[in-house]
Design a protein around this nucleic acid. Structure first.
Lengths: 183, 183
DNA sequence: GATTATTGTGGACACGTGTCCGTTTATATA
DNA sequence: TATATAAACGGACACGTGTCCACAATAATC
């Protein structure tokens, strides 16, 4: 399924790149592409063919985290009303984003990829599910979509450590209010 | 007042850098710092001493535009109710941001500078005035400030040309709703 | 196993950013 | 005008990004 013919050595290299990247990110949250290539014992070109942009690599590195976010969405919807579920989900995103800034980039690329295709990818679908549930009950305004939400909460990436505490959660609340229907 | 001793040649160089930068930005909206230095006939070091970051240079390049935004705020407040005034002001910002992406960076640096000092700078004051007016009538929630607004509308810089039309204005509306008091 | 088309490789290269520091130049003083 | 000193200069340098392409390895075919 996800092997549309991949040469053996290519797969090895790819795996090694991801492995090294994960290790580097885990210990420093930094990601210097050329350093990854060197440590993985491959050339720059090889790295860039496997992962054309830094975001593509981050998406792979943080795939587990993103999958967790995808999976928790329906759980939250089952337990709470749609707006609360969305709020809780925002909290999860913020938790990840705070510790590992790269997670948000991974989420971002997940929603942005396939702009041409109609698919949003799993993460986009998860966000869409949350929004649609809210629209169905009339709690969320009908004219917003997953991309809108990504754009609005993107400020999380530009917040530094010290402003995080005072602004991150607070502004998620403001955004949430903006997403609600005005009765 | 703004000349705490500045050597003659330094002033000349500074002026020439800004002049060149303005010309370059006007014709392409791009700003390659080393190219500016070369065209202005100064070394890289000189450019970086006058403008430590690219944003500082942008702030100077777009000073007129930013001043216009500062001045229009009280006018809008005189003509409209606070929320409408804020909405109109957002429109102005969006107009600038669309044509010249750098304007928003200039606004951003204007509000962010002097984080240590309590002053927000003129642009921050203008935004604050709009927000305070709204808080006074109860239309705007009391727990938001100028920095919050900058963070929220920062998505404008990450929007490309084709998504602009469908999302920029629309999301400004969403943000505005988030800023309103929930009655 | 040899041949061949194709896929993948890797490192040199061009570019932009930002820093550092030895040298130059303006200005105050005499 | 000569001198001292502090301010300003400028370009070399180190670094990270991303591209390009001659070459090498693989896997399919005979």
């Amino acid at each position: 399924m996800n092997t549309p013919r991949l040469r053996a050595d290519a797969a090895e290299n790819r795996a090694r790149i991801v492995e090294v990247a994960r290790a580097v990110v885990a210990s420093s949250d930094e990601l210097k592409l050329n350093a990854i290539a060197r440590q993985a014992g491959v050339g720059q070109g090889t790295l860039y063919r496997h992962f054309p942009t830094r975001e593509d690599l981050l998406a792979e590195v943080y795939r587990h985290e993103v999958e967790e976010l995808v999976e928790v969405a329906p759980v939250l919807l089952a337990e709470h009303d749609p707006v609360t579920a969305l709020a809780r989900w925002f909290d999860r995103v913020a938790d990840y984003a705070r510790v590992k800034r790269g997670v948000f980039a991974a989420v971002e690329v997940g929603v942005w990829q396939d702009l041409s295709a109609h698919s949003l990818g799993p993460i986009g679908d998860a966000m869409t599910a949350l929004l649609e549930a809210g629209k169905a009950t009339g709690a969320i305004r009908p004219d917003v979509d997953a991309r809108d939400v990504i754009l609005l909460i993107g400020y999380l990436t530009r917040l530094d450590e010290e402003e995080w505490d005072t602004r991150a959660r607070h502004l998620l609340g403001v955004v949430l209010d903006g997403l609600r229907s005005r009765e």
